[in-house]
């Protein structure tokens, strides 16, 4: 094999000592791994913030999409309505709801990832 194809020699070492152990804050991790009351509380706080984000996204879905059948039925129930609701039904169900759902999903994904980052920061004490 010609010399230029030989992979370059590299020195492999462990994680720098400073990054491996953060004095004073490592216990948070072991609290979680050892299932102490404090550790459980940590996990519970993460679950609660994630659940809050999920419920908020579901709330948007219920409010903006789940309420549509009632909205469509409203003109019929109230009686007189100028014109037919059909164009509105087409616009809402055929197109309008999809961007709403996608934006809700994007908001949720960002929120959930931020919750996780915040949690890691809390546990690692950064």
């Amino acid at each position: 094999m010609p010399p230029e194809h030989t992979p370059r020699r590299e020195v492999v070492t462990g994680v720098p000592r400073a990054a491996r152990r953060r004095p004073g804050h490592a216990p948070a991790r072991s609290e979680i791994s050892e299932q102490t009351t404090l550790g459980t509380t940590y996990v519970r706080s993460l679950m609660r913030s994630q659940l809050r984000a999920a419920l908020r996204a579901l709330g948007v879905l219920v409010l903006l999409v789940g309420s549509l059948p009632l909205l469509f039925a409203l003109p019929g129930a109230l009686g007189g309505w100028p014109g037919s609701p059909a164009p509105f039904v087409w616009a809402a169900l055929g197109f309008g709801v999809y961007p709403v759902m996608w934006l809700t999903a994007r908001w949720y994904v960002r929120r959930a990832e931020r919750n996780e980052r915040d949690f890691v920061r809390l546990v690692e004490g950064r």
């Binding site: 984000a53 999920a54 996204a57 579901l58 879905l61 999409v65 059948p69 469509f72 059909a86 039904v89 087409w90 169900l93 055929g94 709801v97 999809y98 759902m101 809700t104 999903a105 949720y108 994904v109």
Partner: peptide
Amino acid sequence: QGPEMLWYPVGYTAGYLVLLVL
């Protein structure tokens, strides 16, 4: 049956949103 049937595709899509968040 008309545009009311569009609840099917809306539901199939929203199912993924619910799946994502929960």
